[in-house]
Amino acid sequence: MDGNDEHVDLTQSKIEFISKPDKEIETELEIEDETKKSRKTKRVALFGQIVLGIVIIALWEILTRLKVIDPYYWSSPSLIVQTGLQVLKEGSLYTDLLYTAGATILGFILGTIGGAILGLSFWWSSLYSRITEPYMVAFNAIPKLALAPVLVILFGIGFNSKVVLAFMMTIIVTALAAYSGVKAVDQDLERLLYSLGAKRYHVFSKVVVPTSMPWIVSSLKINIALSLAGTIVGEFISAQHGIGRMILYAGQVMNINLVWVGVVVLSILSIVMYFGTLYLEKWLLKGH
């Protein structure tokens, strides 16, 4: 025991230095180029998307020609294009599209902006937001399309009633989304701004609005479908122009091909609006 203690001094810590390797390690490295890789993935995905589209359209064409599915109800891509070109020549499709797109986009813009303002306004007073919230939720739950006949009587069979329908479809959804954003505002961030001597409007513009922006933006895509549905139903009920009116008329005269033309045009409209919102998103979420 005694002898051991002399050799092993437990209180003595020791530092040993490890020398650097003389030469840099030479190996053949495989360097992954991340941008190249992601660009390639993107290209492959785009290619796949195009192929899938072509396959679906081709299947549709082939199956209807072979009468596997009934071409009377399902029409076919070639017939749709033919009918489409015909109504384009007659010129009525332009006017109809102009009415529908106009009402949808206007309703979409007014509803989204109005909803955002309404939702953000709840930040200013918790009493006001508490009193109003249940009514908002209730109003959101009402199938607003059921009110369409009343609205058409109220605002006339023209353009206005369709805008109002598209607006009503979108405003509350956006308001609730913006309100979720308001609720997610970091209390500490608010405290920080107050500690910097900020007034409420500073906190609102510098923290509340930017925090809520992703919530508001997330409602944009939903609003495309909602505003379009509002406009179409309005046109179904009563209208002189519009794709909705055209579809209704085509259905009544059993021109199923024309119904399909309407559906395709509406799809194209919503796709265009979708890319528009993508662009808008990028701009609104700068730095997010």
Binding site: D186, D188, L189, R191, L192, Y194, S195, L196, G197, A198, K206, V207, P210, M213, L285, K286, G287, H288
Partner: peptide
């Protein structure tokens, strides 16, 4: 009265959307 002293918390509280 706020705004008379500088104040910093454990969380950095930088606004993520600002440089």
């Amino acid at each position: 009265k706020s705004g008379y002293v500088g104040y910093m918390l454990q969380k950095d509280l930088l606004l993520p959307w600002r440089t």
